[in-house]
Design a protein around this nucleic acid. Sequence first.
DNA 1: TTTTAAATCGTAACCATTACGATATCCGTC
DNA 2: GACGGATATCGTAATGGTTACGATTTAAAA
Lengths: 136, 136
Amino acid sequence: MNLNEALNLLKDEGYKFTDKRKDILEFFAEEDGYRTASDLWEKLSVKYPGISYDTIYRNLHLFHDLHILESTELDGEKHFRFSCGHEHHHHHFICNNCGKTKSIETCPMDFIQPKFQGYMIESHKFEVYGLCPVCK
Amino acid sequence: MNLNEALNLLKDEGYKFTDKRKDILEFFAEEDGYRTASDLWEKLSVKYPGISYDTIYRNLHLFHDLHILESTELDGEKHFRFSCGHEHHHHHFICNNCGKTKSIETCPMDFIQPKFQGYMIESHKFEVYGLCPVCK
DNA sequence: TTTTAAATCGTAACCATTACGATATCCGTC
DNA sequence: GACGGATATCGTAATGGTTACGATTTAAAA
């Protein structure tokens, strides 16, 4: 997913195009890592003083529903990043300092499937945390 | 970890023995799966009407610090279970319905280590979610 | 039994998130 | 370009999980 794909998707789905939506998507396109609602609020507040948290969350959810953003929960706070949706299934290393990610192509489900006869597997989560080379 | 080990650990570390602490540990010993603070509050409220959430959380944190309980975050809410601490490192399948778990002995870190030269790996999370045979 | 540090209560505060009526804005249509 | 209606945003209050704290009670050592 990139900025243009996201903007086109918004348009195709019939959602209105607003400056704030463009800026939100640009934020995630530039940041390239997991960011929180308040990270986004701080960024947008410079250009739009007093922007409502309703706007922040409504759009985060919209973009998430459209698979423009993906999310994960870290320390009790939701974090969002541009979706890697069109690539094949993979997981992430996430830097505890800067939030940037590195893809992990190996999926552990490939190794444990046979052990779950009788169970219904619905989802899984595999994430590795630490410091990236820049932050180390 | 079992109930007696936990009670002894509490004593050895110099913490006071109270009925509520005993009942909290018994709750987790019986439940054998991930439970929330409010699950515990509901259970204890029967015997101790008006029990404070301060007591609930203070003891959950104490037991977590003593490695009597382990925790994970599901849907933005912390869940606790009796620790599997004395067994070797492993992960969990967690039933989305009843919270009970099944050990997964395979650790994905065994497969991906070489790919992280230059990174500092601090922790990882691998959990599988779904329905256990009973709930399916 | 006395003492005292620790545990609990009752309640308020905190933080991330959600909700909602009033207002403003986008955008298809005339 | 103006109009009209659906959608987006604002301002703010409410919610849910968690944390905090002074006052009171209790476990257990002396």
